[in-house]
C-alpha cells in the first residue's frame, strides 16, 4: 500500500517555527511499524529527520510520539491499526507539553525531574536476614504492585494528560506510577514520605481522572487506577490495605 506521512518538523538551527513535512512511501506492508516508516523517510528521503528510537519492540521507551492525535510508541503501532485500503495518511507529531528540541525529539529533562521528586527507589534500612539470603515476600504481596513495575518511562501517559499540559509543575502520571510501585511493595519503608510528597499541591490531586494516561500506556498499565490507589492511601493516612 501507499502511505502519506505528515510529520511535524522543526530544526532549531534553521526554522523559526515548526511546519508539516509530507512524505509518500510506496510498497508499505500493512504489518510495518510506524517506526519502520520513519526509518524509510530518514534513510531514503531525508536524513535530517530526527527522532529517538532503540529497541524497536516496545520495551525501551524511546520512541513515544503523537500518532494520529494519540500518544503511542512508534515501534508498537502497526500500519494496519491506523487505517485500511490502498492509501492511508498518518500524522505524526512530538509529544505535547515538553519543549521540542528537533522534529520529534522533546526535552525529557522536566519529565525525569518529576520522576526523581517522588523517591523512585527502594528504601529498606532494616537489618538484612542473618542467613545472608533474600527478604521474604509472599506471592500475593508481590502481585500487589506488579502492574506498576511494567513502566518503561516513555512519557506517553504524562504527555497525554490535560492537567500536565495546563501546568507542567504537576508531577504527572508516570511519576505517580513509579511511586505506586514502591508504596505498595510490602518490603519498602518509605511509603509515608512518598505519600507526603504526592499529597502536596503539585501531586496526585491535580489528576482529574480523565483516563488519557491509561489509554496512552503502551504497557497496558492501569495508570488511572494506580493514581486512584495512591489518592486513597493518602486519604487513609498511608495505611496499606
Amino acid at each position: 500500500m501507499q502511505i502519506t506521512l505528515r510529520i511535524r518538523r522543526f530544526n532549531p538551527e534553521k526554522d523559526k517555527k515548526s511546519y508539516w513535512g509530507e512524505y509518500t512511501l510506496d510498497k508499505v506492508d500493512s504489518t510495518d511499524r510506524v517506526l519502520d516508516l520513519l526509518h524509510r523517510v530518514k534513510w531514503e528521503q531525508d536524513g535530517t529527520l530526527a527522532f529517538r528510537r532503540s529497541c524497536a519492540h516496545g520495551v525501551c521507551g524511546s520512541d513515544g510520539m503523537r500518532i494520529n492525535g494519540v500518544n503511542r510508541l512508534a515501534c508498537k503501532m502497526l500500519v494496519n491499526k491506523l487505517g485500511e485500503g490502498e492509501h492511508i495518511k498518518i500524522q505524526i507529531e512530538p509529544m505535547l507539553g515538553l519543549r521540542v528540541i528537533k522534529d520529534l525529539i522533546v526535552d525529557m529533562e522536566p519529565f525525569f525531574e518529576h520522576y526523581r521528586q517522588v523517591m523512585p527507589y527502594y528504601v529498606n534500612d532494616a537489618p538484612l536476614p542473618e542467613n545472608g539470603r533474600e527478604r521474604l515476600q509472599s506471592p500475593e504481596d508481590r502481585e500487589r504492585f506488579d502492574d506498576t513495575t511494567k513502566c518503561i518511562l516513555c512519557a506517553c501517559c504524562t504527555t497525554s494528560c490535560p492537567s500536565f499540559w495546563a501546568n507542567g509543575v504537576y508531577v504527572g502520571p508516570a511519576a505517580i506510577v513509579q511511586a505506586h510501585r514502591f508504596i505498595f511493595d510490602s518490603r519498602d519503608q518509605a511509603a509515608d514520605e512518598r505519600l507526603k510528597i504526592l499529597s502536596e499541591a503539585d501531586g496526585v490531586w491535580r489528576c482529574r481522572t480523565v483516563f488519557n494516561c491509561t489509554n496512552a500506556c503502551p504497557r497496558d498499565i492501569e495508570v488511572t487506577r494506580a493514581i486512584g490507589e495512591v489518592k486513597m492511601a493518602i486519604r487513609q493516612g498511608a495505611k496499606r490495605e
Binding site: 529498606n124 533474600e134 527478604r135 521474604l136 515476600q137 506471592p139 511493595d185 519498602d188
Partner: peptide, 14 residues
C-alpha cells in the same frame, strides 16, 4: 533482591 528487585516468589516467599 536487597536493592528492591521484585523477583517472582515461591509459595514460601523466596
Amino acid at each position: 533482591e536487597h536493592l528492591g528487585l521484585p523477583f517472582d516468589r515461591t509459595p514460601d516467599g523466596r
